[in-house]
């Protein structure tokens, strides 16, 4: 058990160190997310947009598509330089590789999301109460965890097809539909002043989703790595 945790930390630290040096995922996902925010803002006339009605959809669309891009970069990094072979010959459990990559991808996505959220609030001149911040942060964490849990596994699958830019969103968006629905509904509720109790159902759903797909990824990742 301690060994597994050590390996997970090693892989996550390695991925994060590489990312901090190259900043490929952060820039790609960040810039793309900003573009999505801009597109939505230009898509509605400033006088006709309703911040509370638009925020959940705009925000989560930006999160999901930015995350898609970040996940796609995370794998090409390994494939390009043949690093994946190095990982495969190392005595590290495949499940630990998965969890390490999951942790690193999640950390990157959360940074991007914090940036996009701040920008979005500025664009719409919105102010959130401390409780809303806390609720939204928990939602973003649980939702992104599920998304990245499925996404880390699916990047490996999409990578195997040799057309990952095309295939990844096709796999990921339908699989992440429950997360999207839950996140959007819960965000709408919290913007209308709902508290922890009102969001309990969605938190439970996301927790269950995270648990199921983290376990699935842990068990199935090795089949995606075989050559």
């Amino acid at each position: 058990m301690t060994e597994l945790l050590r390996d997970i930390r090693l892989i996550a630290a390695k991925d994060l160190a590489v990312e901090l040096r190259s900043k490929q995922m952060l820039t790609a996902a960040g810039v793309f997310g900003v573009l999505i925010l801009v597109v939505f803002n230009l898509g509605f006339h400033p006088d006709e947009r309703d911040p509370i009605a638009m925020t959940p959809g705009v925000l989560w669309a930006a999160f999901l598509f930015a995350g898609n891009l970040a996940l796609e970069r995370s794998l090409s990094m390994e494939r390009n330089d043949g690093c994946i072979l190095g990982l495969l010959v190392s005595p590290i459990d495949r499940g630990a590789i998965y969890l390490g990559k999951f942790a690193a991808n999640l950390a990157v996505l959360l940074v991007v999301e914090a940036f996009l959220l701040t920008l979005h609030l500025l664009f719409f001149s919105m102010v959130l109460s401390p409780q809303q911040w806390l609720l939204l942060a928990s939602l973003a964490f649980l939702g992104s965890a599920g998304y990245v849990a499925v996404g880390t596994l699916m990047t490996a699958v999409a990578g195997g097809t040799g057309h990952k830019e095309l295939v990844l969103p096709l796999l990921l968006i339908p699989l992440a539909a429950p997360i999207l629905i839950g996140a959007v509904r819960a965000t709408t509720a919290l913007l209308h002043g709902a508290g922890w109790g009102d969001l309990l159902f969605w938190f439970q759903l996301m927790l269950a989703y995270d648990g199921v797909f983290l376990t699935a990824g842990f068990l199935l990742f090795e089949f995606a790595l075989e050559e």
Partner: peptide
């Protein structure tokens, strides 16, 4: 092999999709 991973994850997703929708 790759498709099998997708099918398993897709099937696991069925209850979540049903409940959320």
């Amino acid at each position: 092999r790759f498709a099998a991973i997708l099918a398993i994850v897709g099937t696991l997703n069925i209850p979540f999709v049903r409940i959320s929708t």
